[in-house]
Simulated assay, not measured.
Amino acid sequence: MTYFQELWSSRELLFNLTKREITGRYKRTVLGQLWSLLNPLASMLVYTFVFSIIFRNDPGPGDPSGIDAYFIWLLCGLLPYQFFSNAVNSGMGAIWSNSALVKKVYFPRTTLVLSSSAASGFNWSVEMGILVIALLIVGGPGVLVFLPVVLLFMALMLIFATGLGLMLAVVNVYFQDTQHLIGIALRLLMYLSPVVYPLTLVMNASNGIGPLFGSVTLFDLYRLNPVERFISAFRTLLYDQRLPELDDTLFCLGYAAVFIVLGLWIFRKNEKKLAELL
Rank of each mutant, 00 (worst) to 15 (best):
M1V: 00
T2S: 14
Y3Q: 07
E6Y: 09
N16P: 03
N16H: 12
T18C: 11
K19V: 03
R20A: 11
T23R: 14
G24S: 09
Y26H: 10
V30D: 06
V30Q: 01
L38I: 11
L41V: 01
S43Y: 11
L45A: 14
Y47F: 14
F51D: 02
S52W: 10
F55Y: 15
N57L: 13
D58Q: 15
G62Q: 04
S65G: 08
I67N: 06
Y70F: 15
L74T: 00
L78F: 03
P80E: 11
Y81Q: 00
F83E: 09
I95F: 15
S116W: 09
A118P: 08
G121H: 04
F122K: 10
N123Y: 12
S125C: 12
M128S: 03
I130Q: 02
I137A: 11
G139H: 02
G139C: 00
G142Q: 04
V145C: 00
V145W: 07
L147D: 04
L147V: 08
V149N: 02
A155E: 01
L158A: 07
G163T: 03
G165V: 04
G165L: 09
F175T: 01
I182C: 13
A185E: 10
T200F: 12
M203E: 12
P211G: 08
V216S: 05
T217R: 10
L224E: 12
E228T: 14
D240Y: 11
L246D: 01
D248C: 12
G263M: 05
G263A: 11
K269H: 11
K269E: 13
A275K: 05
A275Y: 13
E276Q: 10
